[in-house]
């Protein structure tokens, strides 16, 4: 882990690199929830971010090439956190097809969701990336 966001109002970037394995996911989502709590996110937003990161990482781990590294970066900004999670893949595939249930769920959990597919140089394989933006306060419809 590199860098660490400190007290309330403090911004910064925390990066976590792990093997692209399901075993790492509880650690990663805990980091996400902890950063959100320290950035004074409301408890709904903390829980949503935790779930969104869990979902994102699970998705990427399933697509990951053998021995790939899962890279997650958490940028704590004023009243929001930007999460970028990426992994090398053998097969180019949209990690979040528009209209899929996962896409819908992530759109509900995060304020912005972007999925990127970056082709590798040799034509085969490449890198997939999911970017989430989560605001500090949840606004529900009621």
């Amino acid at each position: 882990m590199a860098g660490a966001a400190g007290g309330v109002g403090q911004t910064g970037v925390t990066e976590v690199y792990t093997a692209a394995s399901a075993i790492a996911i509880p650690t990663i989502r805990t980091v996400a929830a902890d950063l959100a709590a320290r950035a004074d996110f409301d408890l709904d937003s903390i829980a949503d971010l935790r779930m969104a990161v869990d979902d994102t990482c699970t998705r990427l781990v399933r697509l990951a090439a053998c021995n790939a590294t899962l890279s997650c970066s958490f940028a704590v900004r004023v009243e929001r956190i930007e999460v970028t999670a990426e992994v090398d893949v053998n097969r180019m595939m949209d990690p979040l097809p528009r209209g899929s249930f996962s896409w819908w769920v992530l759109r509900c959990l995060a304020d912005e969701v972007t999925a990127l597919v970056l082709p590798g140089e040799a034509g085969q394989g490449g890198r997939v990336c999911i970017i989430l933006v989560k605001q500090a306060l949840s606004a529900g419809l009621l």
Binding site: A37, D42, L43, D44
Partner: peptide
């Protein structure tokens, strides 16, 4: 009171 989830602070 707040009509939303509280912040830790």
């Amino acid at each position: 009171q707040l009509g939303r989830a509280p912040r830790p602070s």
